[in-house]
Write a protein that binds this DNA or RNA. Structure first.
Lengths: 210, 210
DNA sequence: ATAAAATGAATGACCATTCATTTATTATTT
DNA sequence: AAATAATAAATGAATGGTCATTCATTTTAT
């Protein structure tokens, strides 16, 4: 029935499904074997598909890796955007939701954390990886700074510096994620959340409890 | 003159010098090409030596990488030990020295940071890497917690939880290092130091100024 | 003269990519 | 509806390039 599109909807859907299937397998394999250790054979076997499939859908290994990083970035970002744009939440509620999200199951998944840090560890040598994340990082920082500035205005927080608080919180979250990845026996997601809250409570004691 | 040692001192010294030379070249190459991109040829060329030299001094590439990680770990650790064991410093001075050290030129060297995060990104798949650092991480945390506990006792800080403060500071430092590595145009070492101090000032306002 | 250190061409393993062939899906015809 | 043609998707054996490792030879130190 579709006059313009050359291929039927079933085919398009399956192509997208294959891409996702391969990205999921890539996440798992990077976590298991490291960015320096994953092979095409690892990924396609994990996905239950044939060796040639990656080049069919992604042209090359490198492009699959980049799409995998982009997938994780987009997922993280879109979750935060939803919170930030929610008209029903107050400023304080948005901040709380942000922190809850940062240490939620979906984000603190060790496979995904492994992928994050695998790419961070290579950004100096491969600027492409950084370029993928640079925009969204700036956006998120801008949104969070804005929330802190609003809360400062709403509450009685003359000494708070919203930008500094944003930089400090962001670095703290990064460090806690690293802890969750490398010492899973040491720090639990819930404890990490408490540490983050402890910092926020030092800045906005009227609104947050440590 | 040495009766026991089979080889002369000049040879021993040169063997050790070669090892260091290769480790330095490895740090530079990992920063430039990433852990997944370095080759033996890269490293030996950077060191100005021949291709076979690594296997002569380190048996294998993997062992050289491990020794490189160990070198950086030991360097960091020994610097902190000197501060912690200094009998001339008060508790507060030791903490200040610790933070200064964490953001000093020697530690915030982007090549070395690149190596740190290259290895962190692979710890999930290669537990050996974590094993190398696990001990010293625990030691440093124990020392720092002790310092915070002493300062709590010395000052008027009933609400401070030394362990929590240690976890929070450590994560914050990790996150700031990551920032320094990936967004060198954004955050400068001096600013990172100020952010860390800002957090400490929230815990010990009588002793530290943001 | 002896022994250790260093070299780098040669080797073999590994792995991303290609592409001829097979399988599945959609369109057309009877 | 069924059969057939046309097209897209998927496969995996074969290819070629890269790279860690080896070791016979050369260089340097004792």
């Amino acid at each position: 029935m579709e006059a313009v599109k050359p291929s039927g909807s079933k085919r398009l859907a399956s192509a997208q499904a294959r891409r996702n299937q391969l990205i999921m397998a890539t996440i798992k394999c990077i976590a298991q074997k490291g960015l320096s250790g994953v092979t095409m054979a690892d990924i396609t076997t994990e996905a239950g598909l044939s060796l040639g499939i990656v080049n069919l859908h992604f042209q090359s290994k490198e492009k699959l890796l980049i799409e995998t990083l982009r997938y994780i970035s987009d997922e993280y970002r879109s979750g935060l955007d939803k919170i930030f744009d929610d008209p029903k939440k107050t400023t304080a509620e948005k901040i709380t939701a942000h922190i809850r999200y940062d240490f939620s199951r979906k984000i603190v998944d060790r496979n995904k954390l492994a992928v994050w840090f695998a790419f961070w560890g290579e950004t100096k040598s491969r600027p492409t990886y950084l370029a993928i994340c640079a925009d969204y990082i700036a956006d998120i920082a801008s949104n969070l700074t804005q929330l802190f500035a609003r809360l400062k205005a709403e509450g009685n927080y003359d000494t708070v510096d919203p930008e500094l608080t944003c930089v400090c919180y962001t670095a703290l979250a990064d460090g806690l994620w690293l802890d969750l990845l490398v010492t899973p026996k040491g720090l639990k997601p819930n404890q990490a959340y408490n540490v983050a809250m402890h910092y926020l409570a030092t800045q906005f004691p009227e609104h947050f409890q440590a």
